[in-house]
Computed example of a mutant assay.
Amino acid sequence: MELCHKILILCICVVSSFDIEAQNNALPKLYHNPLKVEKDALGALYYFIDHNALDLDIIDYSGVYETYLTPIDGLLYEDCTHKLIEGQLQLDSTFFDSYSYWEAQKFAAPANGVLGNDFKRIDVFFYSGASKIDPLSYEVSGRTKVKDYICDFTGEISIKKVYHVFERDIESPDYYTIIASYKLREDPSQKGSGIFRGIFGAYGYIDDESSDIIKVDNISDGDGYQNRNFVGIWQSNNNPSTLKRCMWGDNRLPFRFDFDIGDGEMVVNPKYFSSEWDCFMRNEDIEVEYQENGDSRAKYKNVWWVR
């Protein structure tokens, strides 16, 4: 019996190692693939990004990001994209709105991101009221800011997949992963304008109050938090041969290169410092108002997105 038990353990270990090897072999073929497959404490396989394996010569990481977002076999999950098509599920009406939080209070604020290999700061603001084109597509509009250049944009976000990943234990509650493609066109008459393309990824949840509406998962906002990330490229309107890597999102970015050197939170590498990133690191974009009752509220100082 003891021998059989040892053989069983050995077989499980071998199969598990084969699973990891098979998943690693199935990853997109890059010179240095930043996606790795590991196993958590409960035995489920998951992707993680090896930031040391990122290559500045690779402009577009959107395909890798889509793979990263897709659940690996072994997780308990359901592809429920059809539920959006059939109207059984829908995204919350504010899912694409731009905002941040201060002590659980929501306030209008752009998402921060990076543009190009010199990691220029780009701020992106989506206006509220994204309109449905069809059950899986949304028309959006907003503004971008890079240094002193401000551009208006319009575009579409088209959902490719929605996965419901089920709870495995009390520390791993169920959640929804939304994968979409996007194309955002800046006004070609404005200086420094271009077109953004890539993959959008977000995590959401459903509560008891509205069992058919997926809300943005900002419950887990904390160290390492990242959500509603846009990963792709920017192409210049003036010179279409000019392509730059561009990413933005809530809090941290999924592909950090050597730009973000923080542990628990985002810290900009001094080699990429600029007046814009210095302002971000000093938290000077936000003004906090303290009230007599001890409460405080925050607001963005320079509301450059207001027309």
Results as ranks from 00 to 15, higher is better:
residue 77 Y to A: 02
residue 14 V to N: 01
residue 36 K to Q: 14
residue 94 T to P: 00
residue 20 I to K: 13
residue 106 K to L: 11
residue 47 Y to D: 05
residue 78 E to T: 10
residue 62 S to G: 05
residue 75 L to S: 08
residue 98 S to Y: 00
residue 56 L to T: 03
residue 106 K to G: 03
residue 27 L to Q: 13
residue 106 K to D: 01
residue 19 D to L: 15
residue 107 F to Y: 15
residue 50 D to E: 07
residue 14 V to Q: 09
residue 76 L to T: 10
residue 58 I to D: 05
residue 18 F to M: 12
residue 46 Y to L: 07
residue 62 S to A: 09
residue 62 S to K: 08
residue 88 Q to I: 01
residue 90 Q to T: 07
residue 10 L to C: 14
residue 29 K to G: 00
residue 69 L to D: 03
residue 81 T to W: 06
residue 31 Y to E: 15
residue 41 A to Y: 12
residue 95 F to V: 03
residue 52 N to H: 10
residue 43 G to Q: 02
residue 17 S to K: 09
residue 92 D to Y: 07
residue 39 K to E: 08
residue 95 F to H: 00
residue 6 K to S: 14
residue 105 Q to I: 06
residue 48 F to R: 15
residue 19 D to I: 15
residue 94 T to H: 12
residue 105 Q to H: 12
residue 67 T to R: 14
residue 91 L to W: 10
residue 82 H to P: 00
residue 30 L to C: 07
residue 71 P to Y: 04
residue 64 V to H: 08
residue 84 L to G: 02
residue 19 D to N: 12
residue 99 Y to T: 01
residue 13 C to Q: 15
residue 57 D to K: 15
residue 77 Y to N: 01
residue 94 T to D: 15
residue 90 Q to A: 06
residue 48 F to C: 05
residue 50 D to G: 05
residue 92 D to W: 08
residue 6 K to W: 09
residue 94 T to I: 05
residue 80 C to N: 06
residue 97 D to V: 03
residue 9 I to P: 01
residue 52 N to M: 08
residue 105 Q to K: 14
residue 46 Y to N: 02
residue 82 H to D: 13
residue 20 I to Y: 02
residue 56 L to R: 05
residue 50 D to L: 04
residue 37 V to K: 06
residue 58 I to M: 10
residue 54 L to G: 05
residue 92 D to N: 10
residue 87 G to D: 02
residue 94 T to V: 10
residue 67 T to S: 12
residue 98 S to P: 01
residue 84 L to C: 00
residue 44 A to T: 11
residue 72 I to P: 07
residue 11 C to G: 08
residue 60 D to A: 05
residue 64 V to R: 09
residue 76 L to F: 12
residue 36 K to T: 07
residue 49 I to T: 08
residue 8 L to F: 15
residue 47 Y to K: 11
residue 53 A to K: 14
residue 9 I to V: 14
residue 88 Q to N: 11
residue 43 G to K: 02
residue 75 L to E: 13
residue 9 I to L: 14
residue 50 D to T: 05
residue 58 I to Y: 09
residue 10 L to M: 09
residue 35 L to H: 08
residue 66 E to A: 13
residue 19 D to G: 00
residue 17 S to N: 12
residue 90 Q to P: 00
residue 33 N to W: 07
residue 12 I to F: 14
residue 72 I to R: 04
residue 72 I to K: 05
residue 22 A to Y: 11
residue 39 K to M: 15
residue 55 D to R: 08
residue 44 A to W: 07
residue 28 P to Q: 10
residue 32 H to V: 05
residue 34 P to S: 03
residue 29 K to S: 15
residue 96 F to A: 02
residue 41 A to R: 14
residue 24 N to V: 01
residue 80 C to M: 02
residue 73 D to T: 09
residue 93 S to A: 11
residue 56 L to K: 13
residue 42 L to V: 07
residue 71 P to H: 03
residue 98 S to I: 02
residue 102 W to K: 10
residue 90 Q to H: 10
residue 31 Y to P: 01
residue 52 N to S: 13
residue 38 E to G: 13
residue 99 Y to S: 12
residue 37 V to P: 07
residue 68 Y to W: 11
residue 67 T to E: 14
residue 69 L to Q: 06
residue 15 V to F: 12
residue 107 F to W: 06
residue 8 L to D: 13
residue 80 C to P: 01
residue 43 G to E: 02
residue 88 Q to R: 13
residue 84 L to Y: 03
residue 34 P to M: 01
residue 96 F to I: 04
residue 90 Q to S: 08
residue 93 S to L: 00
